[in-house]
Design a protein around this nucleic acid. Structure first.
Lengths: 186, 186
DNA sequence: GTCTATAGATAGATAGAC
DNA sequence: GTCTATCTATCTATAGAC
């Protein structure tokens, strides 16, 4: 690796995935790259600068894996792939860190909106292959379910957590695939 | 207030709701109650002890508001009430803090499981009033949706966020009320 | 039993050396 | 341009005063 900045960002991502937002400190990240904390501030003057750069990388990566997961062939394959994403605790720790960082740092909030919009858009495209008239609300619903499952799965960390999450996700996809939205009761 | 412990716990909850998990420090909480940090450690010897006590209070409160929200009359009233919960950012900050704390501290994880189970159970009871055969998967689905909407709503913090979340929640309740689970496609 | 001074550890930022 | 010594702030924990 030639670019130290990339190494630092990678170390920051790993740190978030391993110990979460509370452990996102300059000394810890610097040690991971083999640098001193005071050297790290040369590349990223403030903690917020580093956080923003790491958030940007996290979002790019996450949009990539979501796109891949949605590209699966059958509906069940997609459900399984997406359930797999929610079961990856490292990713969930990063996601939660991003949410917190977005709540504190305006730059990260902007990035988080891009992530959220990008995911909803990709889910929307996928849903259109099932039911051409799928409204955006359904995409938002699916997005919210995956986020919720990931957070609950991380916090409860149960043996059958991944299996249960997959079942919920399949149920959700099942319902959405039937265009039930046409028969609203209110 | 006679019991200082309760005052401290209350201050801890407020702190989480205002500045999130990152701001959950003994000095800040102590200042809120008008005590010194070193005095706070008399009531709660370690940070983890205080965190556990605050988590316990948060869970009790959250189960209470969930129960109240689900007791609404019509389906739309419940949807609106639950959407209101997801739009309360202070509550979401506490929830996210609990998830992170559960990921770090075993005692908090146990408490979070109680919270999760309690909510799923209450949602399940509510769903049974709509469709007697509602499987637990549907309750988990609704739970995940609310958690996801809350987290996304906090992080994106958009003007129409609450309205959009309410629309998603209504769509979800609509689908679940139709017992669509009977027509699985895989 | 209630409270505090103080120690020990760790974080983030800056001025300046090479 | 690259890197580091160092300062200041802040956090948690303990020993001990009242």
């Amino acid at each position: 690796m030639q670019d130290r900045r990339q190494d630092i960002i990678k170390a920051g991502l790993e740190t978030l995935g391993e110990v979460g937002y509370a452990g996102f400190t300059q000394p810890r990240i610097a040690a991971k790259v083999g640098l001193r904390q005071s050297h790290l501030t040369y590349y990223f003057p403030t903690r917020a600068d580093l956080l923003t750069a790491v958030a940007q990388a996290a979002i790019k990566a996450q949009l990539g894996v979501v796109e891949t997961a949605l590209r699966g062939g059958s509906l069940e394959a997609v459900a399984t792939a997406v359930a797999g994403l929610t079961a990856r605790h490292e990713t969930t720790r990063i996601l939660i860190a991003l949410a917190q960082a977005a709540d504190e740092e305006p730059r990260v909030r902007t990035l988080f909106r891009q992530l959220s919009d990008g995911i909803v858009q990709r889910i929307g495209q996928f849903l259109k292959t099932l039911t051409p008239t799928a409204p955006e609300t359904n995409a938002r619903l699916l997005h919210a379910v995956t986020v919720g499952l990931a957070v609950i799965g991380l916090a409860t960390d149960r043996p059958d957590g991944a299996r249960d999450a997959a079942a919920v996700l399949k149920a959700a996809l099942n319902m959405l695939a039937h265009r039930i939205e046409k028969r609203a009761i209110f």
